[in-house]
Structures are given as structure tokens and as C-alpha cells.
């Protein structure tokens, strides 16, 4: 359950910026290919925020779809999972999006 570590990292990263300010909303971007389960992260965030100025804050998760670029045929397409295969048959892909694991912003009281 690495989502607990991820949640703790989110709390830590936010607190490093907002210190003792009460945080109401935390907005994160999670790529579909980032190996993080949003439901599990929400559950863990509540636990990780306990006893901190983030306690009770709402976690808003923006999920980002995977996208890849094929170096062989130059097309760009949606990548639903980590199986690297272009419709042209090439596996020489560059993942453009979907691996995001970022804290975007917070709302502070």
C-alpha cells in the first residue's frame, strides 16, 4: 500500500510551503500510468492528514490519461496501460503523459 507513503509525501510537501496555515483543499495530478490508485490515495490522505493543518482537507485528484509518441511512425496516441505498442507494430515509444504524480495547488484558509 504505497499510497500511504504517497499521501504522507503530499502532506509533507504541502506543509513545507504552508506551515501552520489551515489547508482546506489539496489538488493533485495523478497519471493513469503512475501506479497510484485514487481511491486508496484518498483513504490514506485522510489518515496522513490527521493531526496536521491539513486535517479535514479535501483531496481533489485530477487523473491524467496516458499518451505516447511512436518514434517509428511519428504518431501520437492514447496509452491506456504500460504495454508499449503502437498500431504500426513498433514498441519504440516515448511516454508523453500519464506518469504525473504532482501536487498542483492548495486552498489555504
Amino acid at each position: 500500500m504505497h499510497e500511504l507513503s504517497i499521501a504522507e509525501s503530499i502532506v509533507e510537501a504541502v506543509q513545507a510551503r504552508t506551515h501552520e496555515d489551515q489547508v482546506r483543499v489539496v489538488r493533485v495530478r495523478i497519471g493513469k500510468l503512475a501506479a497510484v490508485v485514487p481511491d486508496a490515495l484518498e483513504f490514506c490522505f485522510e489518515l496522513a492528514a490527521c493531526g496536521t493543518p491539513l486535517e479535514g482537507a479535501r483531496l481533489e485528484i485530477a487523473e491524467r490519461p496516458g499518451r505516447a509518441h511512436c518514434r517509428s511512425c511519428d504518431q501520437e496516441f492514447a496509452l491506456p496501460d504500460l504495454v508499449l505498442l503502437c498500431s504500426c507494430g513498433s514498441a519504440d515509444l516515448e511516454i508523453l503523459a500519464g506518469r504525473e504524480l504532482q501536487v498542483a495547488s492548495v486552498e489555504v484558509a
Binding site: S9, I10, E12, A13, V28, V106
Partner: peptide, 20 residues
């Protein structure tokens, strides 16, 4: 009601695992 509390936005734009 708490949704209407005056809040301000702090942009972070950083990797969650930046410290790691």
C-alpha cells in the same frame, strides 16, 4: 458553509515524491 470561507490559492506545482 465552509466552502465559502475565504481561502486563497497557493500554487505548488511540484512532484509528490520530490523529497524522496
Amino acid at each position: 458553509h465552509d466552502e465559502h470561507e475565504r481561502t486563497h490559492t497557493v500554487e505548488l506545482e511540484q512532484a509528490v515524491l520530490a523529497r524522496n
